[in-house]
Amino acid sequence: MDVAEMSPERLWNRKYVHVLLMESVMQMALYLTRPITASYAVSLGASVALAGFIAGLLATAAMAIRPISGSLSDVFSKKNLLVAASAIFAVSALGCATATTTLALAIWCAMQGFAFAFKSTLVISMASLVVPKGSLGSGVGWLSIAYTLACALGPAIGSSLGSSLGYSSVYVLSACLLIVGFFLAIAFKAPEPASGRKDVHRRIGNFANLFKPSKMFYGPAVAYSVVAGLMMIAQGTNNTFLVLMGEQGSIQGAPFYFVVYSVVTLASKPLAGRVSDRYGVSVVVVPALVVAMAGMVQLSVFHSALSVCVAAACMAVGQASAYAAVQAESVRGVDERKLGRAANTFYIGPDIGMGLGPVLGGFVLQTWGAPATFAFNAIAILLSLLAFLAYRAARRSTA
């Protein structure tokens, strides 16, 4: 590989577009089913709290495998691991489609979580290698548009198909998209590590080294992982229960949330990435989280369709922009040989947040209702802001 390919001059190069396409397909496959998983579990006989637990299993399982997925992705071929993860993702989606008990659904959701852990780490690592170093924030911002479009279209399509054809049909469609992602992963020409394959063989000589904390985690990314994890508690709660709240009549216009969130995010995330690249992460994160918190507070008081749309816009400008900014910061300037660990370490927090959100949020919803659930989300975002401010203050004091 020549130097130009290793350090691309343009953000929109062929390899980056390929990564973006893979992420778009796999995110759409995920969000077709994620918002309906709780309803699917309820239809199989689960309580609301248990349904929240099952819906959060994808993130919980991903968190469980994170300690080794990052180190493995730094040692073995990123492309081969992504191909394997895509295959497991597709098979587990088919497994969910055939589930007839909550236990079976839970097992297949956990399998999806294992595959998701590798997929998310590998995609951000590959993106970091194929974009210009000075455009990493913009690259991550545009990459997260895949999530945004999936969040906009997936729940609407999944909910419609789920109610008309049954939840199993949605998982079959998800599996078909994941098979497309599998073939895209096979076709991707991943950059070879600068260290070369000989160095890879030397590093895997002592396999036990993969399980050392220094090989599994990347210290500088831990703080950003905590910040992202706290804000994703709110996101996980919303993604899991908004459709159910709408079906129960607790709020009006629940489907509008995903549409408005996605449309606003299409504009806010790329802008946040450029601002973060130019002025620093704090300029984006602090005001963004304040806006997100305000959106959840007002939705805890007002429950109309307009309030849902306002909350969606606030979360798009706030949580979505802040998440993209801290995600880019967690891998900015990281050595190529540690990219997997850095990306993996960052995702541990969001995995915990997306797992805890449905469990804690489901308990709050079942016990105190929808207003308390949105107030709970606001508290989670406030804690995220405080954690970010504390970390930046600690960095300034030690600089």
Rank of each mutant, 00 (worst) to 15 (best):
R34K: 05
A394S: 10
S276I: 04
L44F: 05
S304V: 01
L382F: 06
S169C: 08
V140Y: 05
S174I: 09
K269C: 00
S86V: 01
G333K: 02
A59G: 08
A228K: 01
F182M: 13
A294R: 04
M111V: 01
L58T: 12
A104I: 05
L143M: 08
I352A: 13
V290F: 11
L210M: 15
K79P: 08
D199W: 15
V83E: 06
A288Y: 00
C176H: 00
M293W: 13
M354D: 07
G318A: 06
A399V: 05
Y279D: 04
S128L: 10
E329Q: 14
A185T: 01
G357E: 10
R197L: 14
S164Q: 14
R34C: 00
S69K: 12
V17A: 09
W142I: 09
Y279Q: 06
A311S: 11
D2Q: 10
Q319I: 07
L11R: 09
G369Y: 04
T121Y: 08
L244Q: 01
Q327M: 08
R202D: 15
K15W: 08
K78E: 13
V286L: 07
R278F: 06
G45L: 01
N239K: 07
K119Y: 15
S159L: 07
M26R: 11
N209T: 10
F207V: 15
I379K: 06
L122A: 09
V263T: 07
L129I: 13
G45M: 02
M111N: 02
L173F: 07
Y347M: 08
S164T: 15
A61H: 00
L230A: 09
V260Y: 06
A342C: 11
A150K: 04
A393G: 07
F258C: 14
V3Y: 12
W12Q: 01
M354V: 08
A322L: 08
A343G: 14
A316E: 09
Y147A: 13
V226P: 03
S120H: 15
V331Y: 06
M26K: 13
T121N: 07
T345S: 14
